[in-house]
Amino acid sequence: MLTTRLTKRLGISHPIIQAPMAFAAGGRLAAAVSSAGAWA
């Protein structure tokens, strides 16, 4: 587990956050990222 200010603030184990990509990838990428446990 990596502990940073971001992980503490959001209550997450890994600081992985997806940037907005609606026009490039649609909702499928956001769904995949969320399913993997990251913030989309």
Rank of each mutant, 00 (worst) to 15 (best):
R9C: 05
M1S: 06
A38F: 00
R9F: 01
W39D: 07
R5P: 05
G37Y: 04
L10W: 03
A30M: 10
G37Q: 02
A19Y: 00
A22F: 15
G11M: 00
G37W: 02
A24I: 15
H14E: 06
T3I: 05
A40D: 04
A25V: 09
F23R: 08
L29K: 10
V33T: 13
S13N: 14
I12L: 01
L29D: 10
Q18E: 12
A19Q: 04
A38W: 00
A30E: 14
A32P: 12
A19M: 04
G37A: 04
V33G: 11
I16Q: 05
L6G: 01
Q18V: 05
R28Y: 10
A24C: 14
G11L: 06
S35P: 11
A38L: 00
P20M: 07
P20E: 10
T3Y: 07
G27Q: 10
A24Q: 15
P15E: 04
I16G: 07
G11P: 07
P20I: 07
A31D: 11
W39G: 12
P20W: 03
L6N: 00
M1R: 07
L29S: 09
H14Q: 08
A40L: 03
S34A: 13
A32K: 15
V33N: 09
A25T: 10
T7F: 00
A19E: 00
A25E: 13
W39V: 09
R9A: 13
S13R: 07
G37N: 03
S13P: 03
A38Q: 00
L10G: 01
A24E: 15
R28F: 11
I16C: 11
P15I: 02
W39E: 11
S13G: 08
A40Q: 09
R28I: 11
L6C: 04
S34E: 14
M21Y: 08
I17G: 01
P20L: 06
P20K: 14
A32M: 10
R28T: 14
M1V: 10
A22C: 15
G37D: 02
K8H: 00
A30H: 09
K8Y: 00
F23W: 13
T3L: 02
G11C: 05
G37S: 03
S34F: 13
V33L: 07
F23M: 14
I17Y: 02
A30D: 14
M21E: 03
G26T: 01
A36K: 13
A22G: 15
M21F: 08
P15R: 03
L2Y: 08
A32D: 15
L6P: 01
I17S: 03
A24K: 13
M1G: 10
H14S: 11
L6T: 09
A25S: 09
T3R: 04
V33Y: 10
T7Y: 01
T7Q: 01
R28M: 07
T4F: 01
A19L: 02
T4C: 03
A36P: 14
F23C: 10
W39T: 08
A22P: 12
P15W: 00
G11R: 00
G26Y: 01
G27E: 08
G27A: 12
Q18W: 02
G11T: 11
A40C: 11
V33D: 12
M1A: 06
A31M: 13
R9W: 02
W39P: 06
A19G: 06
S13K: 08
A32Q: 14
S35C: 11
L2S: 11
P20D: 09
L2A: 04
S35L: 12
I16Y: 06
A40H: 04
L10P: 03
A31E: 12
